[in-house]
Amino acid sequence: MAYLSKALLVAAALALAACSSPDRFGGAGAGAGAGGVAGSAQDPSSPLYFQQAVGDRVLFAIDQSNLSPEAIATLDGQARWLMSNRGFNILIEGHADEQGTREYNLALGARRANAVREYLVSQGVAAGRVDTISYGKERPLEICSEEACYAKNRRAVTVVSAGPVG
């Protein structure tokens, strides 16, 4: 229970942060303002539903950018959601754990974001709806210095970045 509420809090914080500029981690004001993610988790066409029910992230092995079967299952769900909610664009953020140099991790994060991008596009998502960015090791989600945290930080997160058009 405690774990669940923490996860929801983290998800909510991310959702709120997503409303600011693409560099949503850079500003002090990230997270301010209500209603950053439209709709509710019960509304299947809402970004919040995408984030929480579909699953907005996939994880990677150390130094790797290839997609695990688990990751592919998540991305299949993302692709289906994006195909039926065509008004949304996405920004895929690639991240690395803190082991490794800053530059290498930036490049590695870009590889991971691109692996997700290529898969989603291969499943029919229009390439023009997809943007990628790498944060390298700059924005860990978990901050302990152990594999349990590193495993969650080696991630690509699909952020639904724009409201539906029309």
Partner: peptide
Amino acid sequence: GAESLVLA
């Protein structure tokens, strides 16, 4: 300023 992440 601190509004954007800067590196290296």
